[in-house]
Design a protein around this nucleic acid. Structure first.
Lengths: 243, 243
DNA sequence: TTGTGAAATAATGTATACATGAAAAAGCCT
DNA sequence: AGGCTTTTTCATGTATACATTATTTCACAA
């Protein structure tokens, strides 16, 4: 089996392009359907066209860009797309945790993730939410690894690639703090229940929990979308969504 | 919404590399973990390194290759991987048909796919199975388009990318013809039921049918795998699977 | 005025030379 | 002899010039 991605990630020009392009796309500085021209972009990013093209190709596979004849355009997402993406992630994550629950001796592999959940417990009890996003991401990464299958792990990772579909996409909220804090408490209860279900070999329950957990993200994005105008600067992910 | 991919696909060097490399990988002529070197490959394929690298990058995203330090290696799949991939496709396809069933006035969009099912009816009644694979692929393509959402359509397409996960992966069988013919009959019944469920707005039923339909593919691959040695030359997809 | 066509323009596609880094080989020391 | 360091070699990463193809623009005719 493939190792859990401990690659140090080479810091080459292609990575630089990827980081910068992702950031620009997500920030919404390119309105949907903007055509990206290679030469000006390369000049702007201070790299040659070769690594830039490699980055563009990757972003196309990620679904953030799409070809339009010759060249790429920024992909525009609808609100419905965001809901579909989140539900999709929930489904695939659900399959992953079901497989984990069906594994023999899964208990032996739960040490690390239990520590993460414990750390999340303390964060949720805090008065602020600092560090929640990172820990939550770690939890979900560890969760998908529990299935013990590279294919399903990769697919969950992929389903989380869109900025609004990731588990920690809306894990901070300046406004409406109380409501958000409650959703964190519920989410954390899901985390505990998820682990318990996996440990007990309750595959169907684990799968249902993963889906419900994703549903929580759906609710969060729906709330966020309603007050979109005011929140745009807090949640750049929303800039990608056009209707 | 994006158009249903009527792009004529430019016939450039990158496409040539993709075709050739896919064919070589699937045929199993490179044992798992074979390192691919760019320069010899480029010479062999009679292209420069630039389009070759583009093709390699795409195949990495497809999951047929993986990076190993510097350079690519052919990804090896286990039997479990194949089962997971098929079930995954069934799940995602299931979500797609559920969305289709939940659409208003979906009946207006069923003309083309009904024609495909009718064509499949005649093929299934034949004494041979010529043309089944192509028609079946067409049916599934049209099916995923019914959801009316580019994101879910793209994801179903992606879930079908692995040679053993595609809907028509094992749609021919020289040996054990009778058993295989029966599975075709059952599969075709699924097709009819799927359309009926979508037309009537029975989302849950449509989803369940899509999953069961994928399960049929699982059974087929299990049977095929048991007699793998004799069938390798008929089913090159199996060469990818190592244990 | 609008449609069609061809020519001009500008973009992406490709090849190749060079830079950089990693892996392999050789030599040295212990 | 074995293991470590150094050097060499070779593969990938990058830049850029050139080829090809797509797009735009302008002219001309219906």
């Amino acid at each position: 089996m493939k190792k859990p991605d401990n690659e140090p990630k080479p810091d080459n020009q292609t990575e630089k392009c990827l980081r910068e392009l992702r950031s620009r796309i997500i920030s919404g500085q390119w309105p949907g359907a903007t055509k990206l021209r290679e030469v000006p972009l390369a000049t702007d990013l201070d790299v040659s066209r070769t690594p830039l093209r490699a980055a563009l190709l990757k972003l196309e596979q990620e679904g953030l860009l799409e070809r339009s004849g010759a060249g790429y355009t920024v992909r525009a997402f609808s609100f419905k797309d965001a809901l579909v993406a989140i539900e999709l992630r929930g489904m695939i994550e659900g399959m992953a945790v079901r497989l984990a629950a069906e594994r023999l001796n899964i208990g032996d592999h739960l040490t690390a993730i239990k520590a993460t959940v414990a750390a999340l417990d303390t964060v949720v009890q805090q008065e602020h939410t600092d560090g929640y996003g990172d820990l939550n991401k770690l939890f979900h990464d560890q969760l998908t690894a529990l299935a013990g299958n590279d294919l399903i792990r990769d697919e969950v990772q992929r389903a989380s690639r869109l900025p609004f579909a990731a588990p920690s996409a809306f894990s901070s909220s300046k406004d409406d703090y109380e409501r958000f804090k409650e959703s964190l408490v519920v989410g954390q209860q899901h985390h505990h229940a998820l682990l318990q279900a996996i440990e007990r070999g309750e595959g169907a329950r684990a799968e249902a929990l993963a889906r419900e957990h994703a549903h929580l993200a759906k609710i969060n994005i729906e709330v966020a979308f309603k007050v979109r105008a005011e929140k745009l600067h807090h949640m750049p992910q929303l800039a990608l969504i056009t209707d």
